[in-house]
């Protein structure tokens, strides 16, 4: 199985490193031809508005959207979660996504950088021990559809608990960044459970 990491902008090298730690040689994806060769995709952290704009500039937007709809296993962290959401709020006017997961995601829901944080979170389906999660200007999931499985939730500044890791069939999304920690359990879960 060939796993690609969308390498238009953001921390794609950290995702490639996480894959390598799991024994998988990932490839950088920037063109339609490169996209044709892969069986699974990771959408990295970065700026979602920039990633959409570049995906259109480099003619991969529609193709990724179609591959996701056709069942290509895909994992997105932070900006990647936004890109996989069917609906987004607090977005730039007219901001599009690849979609695929029946969720509404609020951009920068945990606040600006001054509110960014790290914390241990519990996600029993992914790992028995707590996962160390880094949230950077992070989104959260505001609404989930019936077929979406919530894997982890975390309390926001509004005092309510919000989903921060979700799965719908072949699609996985986290509001946090496992790729910049030494804990690769989310990547292992993606490779072993979501891709199989």
């Amino acid at each position: 199985m060939q796993v690609g990491v969308l390498a238009l902008q953001g921390d794609f090298r950290e995702h490639l490193n996480a894959l390598a730690q799991c024994g998988v040689q990932g490839v950088e994806i920037r063109t339609p031809a490169e996209l044709d060769k892969i069986d699974a995709l990771i959408i990295p952290g970065g700026e979602s508005t920039t990633i959409v704009s570049l995906a259109k500039t480099f003619d991969v937007f529609e193709q990724i959207k179609k591959r996701i709809a056709d069942g290509m296993p895909t994992y997105g962290s932070c900006a990647g979660m936004i890109m996989l959401a069917d609906h987004i709020v607090a977005a730039k006017d007219g901001q599009e996504t690849f979609g695929g997961i029946d969720i509404t995601v609020r951009r920068n829901a945990f606040g600006r950088q001054v509110d960014s944080f790290e914390s241990d979170i519990s996600a029993p389906a992914i790992s028995k021990s707590p996962i160390h999660a880094i949230f950077i200007r992070a989104p959260w999931v505001e609404k989930v559809g019936k077929s979406v499985e919530v894997l982890a939730s975390y309390e926001g500044s509004d005092g309510a608990s919000h989903p921060v890791a979700v799965r719908q069939g072949h699609l996985l999304a986290t509001a946090f960044h496992p790729e910049i920690t030494d804990d690769f359990s989310v990547h292992r879960y993606f490779l072993e459970k979501v891709c199989s």
Binding site: L8, Q9, G10, D11, G45, E47, F117, R137
Partner: peptide, 16 residues
């Protein structure tokens, strides 16, 4: 405000 959270923010700007 930890180093990881601050440096992580910079990581997200890469390639931009």
């Amino acid at each position: 405000g930890t180093s990881r959270v601050k440096r992580g923010m910079a990581e997200m700007l890469k390639g931009g």
